[in-house]
Every structure is written in C-alpha cells, then in structure tokens.
Design a protein around this nucleic acid. Structure first.
Length: 144
DNA sequence: GCCAACGTTGGC
DNA sequence: GCCAACGTTGGC
C-alpha cells in the first residue's frame, strides 16, 4: 500500500464536502488535475491506497484521511487532445476519517523529520507522495 | 532543442 | 496584493 497527499481549496471542495458526499457509499471523482506530475502520481495509485486531504490557501493544513477506491480513469471534465486521446485522468476517493487535530503547514515546516515531505519541497504539486514514515508521524500529529 | 515570455499555483 | 517556483508556449 502506498500513501499520498492531495490538495483542494476548501472554498471549492473541502474535506467536509467529501464526507457529506461519500458517507453513504458514493464515490468522489478527483477531477480537475491538469498537471502531468500530479496525474502520473494518480496513475500510480492502487485501490486501497491512503491519502491525506490537504486544504490549500485557506487553512493550509491536513484535515483528514481518504482512501482510493478506483484506479485512474479518464477525467470526464477534461477535453481530449488534438489526436482525440485521453490526456487527463483521475481516481475515485472516499473519506475515511477526519484528523481530531488538523496538522498545519507551519507545524510540518517546524518538524525536522518532515523536511523531505514533497508537500514542502514541491509546494506547487497538487498530488504528492508521502513515505510510510512520514505518514505515521503525520497521523500521530493529527491525533489518530 | 533552446530559451524568453507568459500563466498559474500557493504561501506569505 | 506580491512574489517565488515552476509549467507551458511559441519563436528561432
């Protein structure tokens, strides 16, 4: 199993929105990614992988955990390229549980063990990898 | 294939 | 609102 971190602006789509949408078994398409590195990360995801939900711009904190429930598939909100090929893909996710205590970017930056976290090093990447060590530490910091 | 110009993201 | 970092585009 692999671990990931996915960003969303909470005024567009928040973790609470995800909980409301998926609590009854519905899935949420993580559509809208238009960056090759982020897309490649999604294509590398497997069903059962876990991902943090990070609120960018507003809050700037990890607010909860979600799970990948469908492998990458064509993004229905994206146009095809000039050759009619699918370029942009997305995975489907469901919420798992919120952090009892959100972990802020400031806290992450103040933690030496998290200095290599892709969220910090590649700040513009909207879908990034998290190592198992980083995952466990962040869950502890979040009160899980 | 290089690189300058421009656009976008996201933290501050 | 500003700006750094980075991606994309287009001229050569």
């Amino acid at each position: 199993m692999a671990y990931w971190l996915m960003k969303s602006e909470p005024d567009v789509f928040s973790f609470d929105d995800l909980i409301a949408k998926t609590k009854n078994g519905e899935v949420e398409e993580w559509h809208g990614v238009r960056n090759y590195a982020a897309r490649n990360n999604m294509k590398a995801m497997a069903v059962g992988d876990q991902a943090f939900f990070y609120h960018s711009n507003i809050g700037k904190e990890i607010v909860g955990v979600m799970t990948i429930v469908a492998q990458a598939h064509p993004d229905s909100t994206a146009d095809l390229n000039a050759k009619g090929e699918v370029v942009w893909e997305c995975v489907d996710v469901q919420s798992v549980k919120p952090f009892p205590r959100p972990v802020t970017l400031a806290e992450i930056k103040a933690t030496p063990e998290l200095s290599e976290l892709e969220l910090v090093k590649l700040s513009r990447l909207s879908v990034s990898k998290v190592s198992e060590t980083e995952w466990k530490l962040l869950c502890t910091m979040g009160g899980l």
